[in-house]
Design a binder for these strands. Structure first.
Lengths: 340, 340
DNA sequence: GTGAAAGCGCTAACAC
DNA sequence: GTGTTAGCGCTTTCAC
């Protein structure tokens, strides 16, 4: 069992002074005499004093914490986001408290409730990434009045930071177009997920009236296996370009195609999205769209801190991070360019 | 700015009853009359009451939280661990508080201090995974008296849960041996990291006196790029088997070799370790050693909860999780077997 | 420069 | 059944 932790009172008794002095000394308040302060620190050290944050926060009415909910930590995209957010936050004086919703709206609600009861001073909200009802979460957040910013996707009633998904999709499509494709397949996920719907819409509107035969597949999940299997089915009647909603899917396609003896990009071009590890560690490095997660994180922290300090930053501001086309080797056009 | 949260006192005033009753009702204590309880809940709802956890924890002297420090969330291995731990923990009534040390001993110390001040009731300690001095962390943990279990690696002064790294290494080596290799290269990381040293020792002692030409490379990091580059250097004078400390490295080797026109496993066998995503999404699926992260997580939680409840579970117990050889396509022997 | 005292929001005896 | 009261450990005026 745990030994009872040392309190300020213990130190005060031990030193024969008052709690107030000890507290002031410990907080480095200059009003206490230097030698007194030194004595206090020595005693604190000796007794193994560690402040009780609960007591502290209770009276200060500040938690010094910022909460973060993410849908899935095993997804490299979110893992990078968490890492970036954690880095950016550590300079701010706040500590980050991470919650995982596992893509379940119910867990998300629980996490948000936890954050509210723990009096987080700010919240970074990354909603579940599957079709699901998150109105409960949004209502809770709203009602709490805690400064919140929604990251990587859109929510209509709070500030958001997300990438220019449409722009990215258009850029990569333009790149693909240079190859004069006649049949494009686009592997997307279930509809009802903002970031996927956005991608689908963008590609759809860009291709419209181009005479290109575009076929969109709404897979059950935006993961490796689904894409891998989709590629299998496509093999019989191959399009010349297969675009994917993310890199992990593109990897699945590349691997399956390669297995089948279909060469990428010679026979078919494949594109990813996100510019994650997979785009680099793919046997055929992927042409993709970079979502600058570092930038998302920085902007998110910036806006959140602004909100917390009530800097007069507009609420419900939507901040769009530009995307960048990254040309690697999974699309034909690249090589063409690279070689001349 | 945030509106002032509703307190129990507000509800009491609003309803014209005492705080105690409200508190009891809110906690579902059966002594309060049903209708009173109903009224209280209604009022709480109406006023948007969310309990102040700090006050609660202060008086209860319990945080209801378990802390977790991990070195690197972008590493799929740790990401899976966090996920598994988070899942297992959620049934236990405790909430998990995640800290990222970014493989920096200093950040690790900070995280541990945070956990102690936040009065975590238990700690899952996953030490930094690079050579570095973590005695400070261990001393802090020790001194705090908080039940702690060290996961995925060994620490001499606390309970540990880790995989049978040596056994795993031996198993995969045995498998490789069936091919009668004459020259094996083993790609490891810097020495001074327990889990890597263990692997190195195991392979070293197993190969000793076998007449096999074993060459061990202590790379600066156990990642894709380092392994990729090492493979480049090896190409000139190729061993017949390249073993790696993890799957991510093995993927780097496979990709580089493939680029160089060296076929895996026909010309050289490659092995991984961990059985992570990479072993499955590799263009040549990797023969590897499975570390059952789910099991690690379950056992860790079990031991930790035992420690917290002082179940008389021996402290400083080292629990070893068995590893499993997973034969896929990156080693010759497999195919040999598979085909006959 | 230091101490006494009030109170942060909540819980848990103990009275009534 | 419900109210009164005394803290949990800390910070912070305000006296001295």
């Amino acid at each position: 069992m745990q030994k009872k932790p040392t309190t300020i009172r213990d130190i005060a008794k031990y030193l024969g002074m008052s709690e107030a002095t000890v507290s002031l000394a410990l907080n480095g308040n200059p009003v206490v005499k230097k030698e007194t302060a030194a004595k206090v620190h020595a005693a604190a050290d000796e007794l193994g004093y560690v402040p009780n944050e609960f007591a502290r926060r209770l009276v200060l009415k500040k938690s010094g914490m910022i909460g973060l909910v993410v849908p899935d930590i095993e997804n490299v995209y979110y893992a990078s986001l968490v890492k970036a957010l954690s880095d950016r936050m550590s300079d701010s004086g706040y500590s980050l408290s991470i919650f995982i919703s596992s893509n379940e709206p119910l867990k998300e609600v629980r996490a948000i409730n936890d954050m509210i009861s723990s009096r987080m001073e700010g919240i970074v909200y990354v909603p579940v990434n599957t079709p699901g009802d998150i109105t409960a979460s949004r209502k809770l957040l709203k009602r709490s009045g805690i400064p919140t910013v929604c990251a990587t996707t859109y929510s209509d009633d709070m500030s958001c930071v997300l990438c220019d998904l449409e722009g990215g999709m258009k850029k990569i499509l333009e790149h693909v177009m240079k190859n004069s494709p006649s049949r494009i397949a686009y592997l997307n996920g279930p509809s009802g997920v903002y970031t996927l719907d956005k991608r689908r819409d963008a590609i759809l509107s860009a291709v419209k009236n181009s005479g290109i035969d575009l076929k969109i597949y709404d897979l059950t999940a935006v993961d490796y296996l689904c894409a891998y299997e989709a590629a299998s089915h496509m093999a019989a009647d191959l399009p010349d370009t297969i675009m994917c909603a993310n890199d992990f899917m593109a990897l699945g396609v590349v691997n399956r195609l390669t297995e089948l003896g279909i060469s990428v990009p010679e026979r078919v071009s494949v594109t990813g999205f996100d510019d994650s590890v997979f785009s680099v560690t793919s046997p055929v490095p992927l042409t993709t769209v970079k979502q600058d997660i570092g930038l998302i994180a920085s902007k998110t922290v910036e806006i959140l801190l602004g909100l917390i300090n009530d800097d007069g930053i507009t609420k419900n501001e939507v901040h769009t991070i530009p995307t960048e086309l990254i040309i690697r080797k999974s699309t034909r056009h690249v090589q063409y360019h690279a070689k001349k």
